[in-house]
């Protein structure tokens, strides 16, 4: 699980061009949207593509997305339970 969290942090920094962040800057329970990393709706689309491409998870329900993208901790748990690749 820890390896997955590290991988997610690295991919999010790279995919979303979070130039000023390092893996160490992102805590497992930091909110991804709003006050935490300050991600926005376009970042949400990028994350949906990332989940599909890297883990074979298709997120179609916006309400589910809101829960899944709460933090790295929640996202890693969701991926572990639902990944197809």
């Amino acid at each position: 699980m820890d390896a997955l969290k590290q991988e997610l942090k690295k991919n999010i920094i790279e995919q979303l061009n979070l130039e000023d962040f390092t893996v160490e800057d992102i805590l497992d329970d930091d909110p991804l949207f709003g006050d935490g990393l300050g991600l926005d709706s376009i970042d949400a689309l990028e994350l949906i593509v990332l989940l599909d491409k890297d883990y074979g998870i298709k997120l179609t329900d916006p309400i589910e997305g809101k829960i899944v993208f709460k933090s790295i901790e929640v996202l890693a748990n969701y991926i572990t339970e639902n990944r197809t690749k």
Binding site: N17, I42, L45, E46, V49, D52, K53
Partner: peptide, 13 residues
């Protein structure tokens, strides 16, 4: 590379 799948919005914009 992705066979017309997984197109991300940022580079399109």
């Amino acid at each position: 590379e992705n066979d017309e799948q997984y197109l991300t919005p940022t580079s399109f914009i």
